[in-house]
Design a protein around this nucleic acid. Sequence first.
RNA 1: CGGGGAGUAGCGCAGCCUGGUAGCGCAUCUGUUUUGGGAACAGAGGGUCGCAGGUUCAAAUCCUGUCUCCCCGACCA
Length: 429
Amino acid sequence: MKFSNFFIPTLKESSSDVKMRSHDLMIRSGMIRQETSGIYSWMPLGFRVLKKIIDKIEFLHDEKGINQILMPTIQSSDIWRISNRYDTYGKEMLRIIDRNNKDLLYGPTNEEMITAIGKQYIKSYKNLPRRFYHIQTKFRDEIRPRYGVMRAREFLMKDAYSFDIDEVNGENTYCDFFKLYLKIFSQLGIPVIPVRAPSGEIGGNLSHEFHLVVRTGESEIFLDSKLLDQSCENFELDQILSLNSYTDDYFKEIENKKNLEKFKSIELGHIFLFGTKYSSSFNFNVDSENGKFMPFMGSYGIGISRIPAAVIELSNDNDGIIWPKAISPFSVHLINLNVDDTECSEFCEKFYKEIKSRDIDILYDDRNERPGKKFSDADLIGIPLQVICGNSFKKCRELSILKRSNKDQIDIGVGKAIKKIIEMIGWNE
RNA sequence: CGGGGAGUAGCGCAGCCUGGUAGCGCAUCUGUUUUGGGAACAGAGGGUCGCAGGUUCAAAUCCUGUCUCCCCGACCA
């Protein structure tokens, strides 16, 4: 992508209204624009990051045989009356009336709808288990939206739902999702901690949240600090159940508070096994070999649009964002400092095409701007590798490769540059 | 919903107390010189001062109402 043809409206100055680092950087790097309180447009650069995250999440869900669907944003009040949540959900639910005076709502979540879908099609135990997911805009009319997309009213969420024949199978599914979530976050380059959350209204249910520990986070969790360095990706159910980590709410309920430290964090995911809560209110019965039963259900959410903000909150410096490779909008940022020079521009053009032909995302700054502006934009946008073509190209056919994370710079002959870049992209950090 | 702050050019702000031709920086446009870390000079364009009412010869400024946004607390991915 050429910078001249990719709209990134960067800003030099911060708004005094913006208090959180990630919020400020997302606005100044031209990723998002506020529409009204808690509602944001995603500009080209921001949307690219979002798409990277979506792609990874989709891939890993599809790989597990979880079927992607797309449910509507607008729901009928009817199904919410069946679950009795239309009246209890409260003011967070945005209610809408259509021209025929029918009560509609902008979906804050989809348990009711997925249960209605399941009930219509799943008639036999032979049709179970089933797992579905969708990625869709949600709306929750939060009391106080804040910090940009970190706590927005309209937000993008991946929510998955499972149907199983009984509790044991439901727990296995839950366990699968637990591991899947750890894998997803690890592949996104985000070190999350699984945290036990309180059981819901129905006793005996399972719930965990996935938190990113960061000093400026707005949640509080309590955990054994050993968990910070431990991988839980291969945990079995009993280990998951006995994790020594708790959400704020859960912490108040437990008795043994030894070895628990308080951390600030950002909640990025939440999984929940709620059993037959909705299948029973929907009278969702399925034939078994010798009678009928109600499917055992769970739901599994990831706050997609919150992820870029969380990552930036964790990974930035005075000059701007430092993207982890996995979700960086581009892998390489080529900076041409001499666009007026034919030789330099021709080289950059060729170099740009060559990198692109190797399936590497590259942003090529071909704008007629001064070096200082290009460097500061590059640092603000935060692409992991900056490749600079300037004076040393003219003098001795060298490029500079600069790592955004620590500003380490190497100068390298043009012939060796591509090989080196590919090598650096492959580095794990 | 309680408490606090703010709405003036695309962005960031001053002016308001003490009423009298709406200003500064950034950005934008033109020209010249510049070009490895947000360039310099010269010029130009851009505003129903959130909205509505009131006081006054005169309102960005004073009064009343209203809308919106932000921050702190109780809810959430």
